[in-house]
Simulated assay, not measured.
Amino acid sequence: MALLRLVLNIIWLLFAGVWLALGYALAGIVCFVLVITIPFGIASFRMANYALWPFGRSLVRRQSAGGLTLVGNVVWIVVAGWWLVLGHIASAVGLAVTIIGIPLAWASLKMIPVALAPFGNEIVSSGVPREPWQI
């Protein structure tokens, strides 16, 4: 299973991961330049890391997310989220053309929730047991 994840991550990196991570990194740089949006930049770089190596990791909702998280996510959607979602959809369509690309297309679609709402979510390793207090 670990070998399959490694192979899928390498193929992903070559065909979609680099381009999607560059999109997230560009959004993060813009957020850092604007200074007041530095928390958005930090979230963007966290998502760029996820976009580079998605297999073997998953998205988990944090229980401690509050009302400020909702406000941050709404601002994110308006400023950068919908652009990144379009990038994920475009890459999924391109990857789904081949049989080998179907799992990669699914991974791209799986990342849409974190592209829309980076705050209040956490990227964790799949298959690692978590304590309730860590969520």
Rank of each mutant, 00 (worst) to 15 (best):
V18D: 02
V30C: 14
I99H: 01
F119W: 10
T37W: 08
F40H: 04
F15Y: 07
A107Y: 08
I29Q: 07
W12N: 01
F45G: 04
A43D: 04
I77M: 15
I102G: 10
S44N: 01
C31N: 05
L95K: 00
L6A: 04
I11H: 11
P54N: 10
V93M: 03
R57Y: 15
P39A: 02
P39Y: 06
F45Q: 04
V33L: 15
I10L: 14
N121W: 10
A65R: 08
I29T: 15
L116F: 09
L8H: 03
V33T: 09
G66D: 09
Y24L: 02
V18P: 05
V7N: 10
L34A: 15
R57E: 12
T69G: 15
P103S: 07
I100Q: 10
P132Q: 01
G120V: 13
I100A: 13
V33E: 08
W53L: 12
V93D: 00
L116A: 06
F15Q: 00
L14V: 14
N9I: 02
R130I: 00
A43Q: 09
I10K: 08
E131Y: 13
L104G: 14
M111L: 10
V85I: 02
I89H: 04
V97Y: 01
V18S: 03
S126I: 05
V75T: 02
N49Y: 04
E131F: 14
A80C: 10
W133E: 03
I112M: 03
A21H: 02
A27G: 08
M1L: 14
A27N: 00
W83Y: 13
F119H: 07
V33N: 14
I38P: 03
A48I: 06
S58P: 08
G41E: 12
V74H: 13
